[in-house]
């Protein structure tokens, strides 16, 4: 009994410490009210019966009645599980649901929580049908998987603590400690533009923010939308300048399945023509970025797509 009490006391202590350190920078709530996700899907197109060719990947998915999507559960604004409803919300998540509706007729998806390390393997062995996970199209990756799209172009920006001087462009990061998300394209981008920078990585965005605030590094390089959301919540942090890279996000598909790739590209075109793509952007990323939805990138415009 005494042992039990001790254990409980210690774990409570741990919990208290967690909440006090994480409290200020919790990423979970940019836009508590997630409006009109169902309205969005009501507008999403459904494929003609003729497009679902017998024996194709689309038909298999339709037979199964569920689209298996490789994605994140912890990416704010893109693909994040709502702790209250259990629904996964955000731009990537909406796109996945819309694709499921296009194939099956209903937005039935199962999101398989994949990591950057496992995406290629998960697509290759058929664990997932598609990947919607800020999956930047690169020539190296295109040797392992096929990319439909690009469906969105993002870019990396630099965030610093307010009052930091001497950092105006990526080259200024040389010789400094720079924080980046583990498994994000930021690592390669920093190495290219500021080879003398010391890169320190953390698994999640809130950890990176905490590290920035605790002066573990002078700057934090991350996707512009994420940084915009962070800066909006936390007035001690500011974003510097415009994005300095262009990262085209693709929809990861099995390598060599040209039929399915064309099918997904056709769907993407329809989504953009019908304005559903734009609506999905407005409901998610548009809640932190000012202005109208940007023009979607041209499909197949990137080497590897």
């Amino acid at each position: 009994m005494r042992k039990m009490v001790a254990v409980v006391a210690v774990s409570l202590l741990g919990l208290a410490a967690c909440s006090s350190t994480g409290g200020g920078s919790n990423p979970a709530v940019p836009g508590d009210a997630k409006p009109a996700a169902s309205g969005l899907l009501a507008k999403a197109p459904v494929a003609d019966a003729a497009a679902i060719v017998p024996g194709s990947t689309m038909e298999k998915i339709k037979q199964r009645g569920e689209l298996l999507v490789g994605g994140s559960l912890d990416a704010p604004l893109l693909s994040q599980q709502n702790p209250v409803s259990g629904e996964v919300e955000g731009f990537d998540a909406s796109m996945g649901k819309a694709l499921a509706k296009y194939i099956i007729g209903e937005p039935k998806v199962k999101i398989v929580n994949s990591a950057s390390e496992t995406r290629e393997a998960l697509i290759g062995n058929g664990t997932v049908d598609v990947v919607f996970q800020t999956y930047t199209i690169t020539p190296e990756r295109a040797k392992q998987v096929a990319f439909a799209g690009p469906y969105y172009t993002s870019g990396l920006s630099i965030a610093v603590k307010k009052g930091t001087t001497g950092i105006a462009k990526p080259e200024d990061l040389n010789g400094k400690k720079v924080i980046a998300g583990a498994n994000t394209p930021a690592i390669a981008a920093i190495k290219k533009l500021a080879p003398q920078a010391e890169i320190i990585t953390f698994g999640s965005d809130p950890e990176c923010m905490q590290a920035l605030k605790q002066d573990r590094g002078v700057a934090y390089v991350q996707d512009e939308t994420l940084l915009a959301a962070n800066a909006q919540k936390d007035p001690t942090v500011q974003v510097i300048g415009n994005p300095f890279t262009e990262d085209p996000y693709g929809i990861g598909l099995k390598h060599g399945d040209e039929q399915f790739k064309k099918f997904v590209n056709d769907w993407l075109k329809k989504m953009q023509d019908a304005g559903v793509w734009q609506q999905a952007w407005k409901d998610s990323l548009g809640t932190v970025v000012k202005g109208e939805a940007p023009a979607p990138p041209a499909i197949g415009s990137v080497p590897g797509s």
């Binding site: 496992t118 290629e120 393997a121 690169t138 190296e140 990756r141 040797k143 392992q144 394209p185």
Partner: peptide, 8 residues
Amino acid sequence: NLQEAQPI
């Protein structure tokens, strides 16, 4: 792996 995409 992030760079090369060859996890196995």
